[in-house]
Amino acid sequence: MQKELLKVTDLKQHFPIKGGVFGRTVNHVKAVDGVSFTIYEGETVSIVGESGCGKSTTGRSILRLDEPTSGQVEFDGKDLLAFSKRQMRKNRKDMQVIFQDPYASLNPRQTVRQILKEAMTIQNAVPKEKQDERVIELMETVGLGKHQIDRYPHEFSGGQRQRIGIARALSVDPQIIICDEAVSALDVSIQAQVINLLKKLQREFNLTYLFISHDLGVVRHISDRIIVMYLGKIVEIADKKSLFSNPQHPYTKSLLSAIPSVNPDQKRERIILTGDVPSPIDPPTGCRFHTRCPFATERCATETPELRTSDYMKDGHQAACHYIEEIESGLHQVKQ
């Protein structure tokens, strides 16, 4: 059994909406609404879903960049939500994050050297006299040249900036890195380079990744296990192989079928979902996907399905749907 590194239990993140004459809280955006999962040391778990599903908020809540409303986050046996702000800052050393837009997350008035040294100083990760040496080492690790050490972020290309972001995350020797759409803004040829770098670093430093992305191709390549979210809830969780070869939740199925294939000869049967994702302020009752689900029945509108497994699924594969068996066996058909 691998070591449990991060354990999230019933995590909720509700953002208040103010209104009325006195600016009272009139409602909540239920961005994350009861999410539980475990990440083992050294693996890559991805969260996929469309905008507004709560995947990024989940990442931010785990790091307490936004204070979660309720739930439990256990990291390396420690209860993160019980920590004071100061203790939390200390513990961030082990949990780093890389954002989508490397340019926005790097101080434009600092050189690479300053950026990396600052990160080390804040966390007391490397003694002052060894910092310069470590900066050079880090730059080589992420594939940047020594001669670029005193340059400012604007002097780098998008891919190189993301490498700086990665170097900054690595500078404090973390155990887990949360990659929030870390390669989404990059061009395809650069994206491949950065993905390869992330995989190389994982092998070298035994890193654990929580990889948040909307790109299923990238997710398939990088992950061990995948979590699919819809409107603040997990609808399916499985290892990569089972998820892509044997998706169970109707949402996962339609999501996979919606990705355009690069093979022009392959004309697949596509499930095109109608309508938009409903608002997380007032999410549908029962199964949140029932308003767009081709298989939905009255039961789906009233009863919330829990994550569960079935005979069709193996190795911890779970989905939150009432009709896994019926759909799989063909008993339950799409309403025409």
Binding site: V188, A192, G217, R220, F244, S261, V262
Partner: peptide
């Protein structure tokens, strides 16, 4: 260099 979604 495009990671495919339909094969490993």
């Amino acid at each position: 260099s495009l990671p495919p979604h339909d094969r490993d």
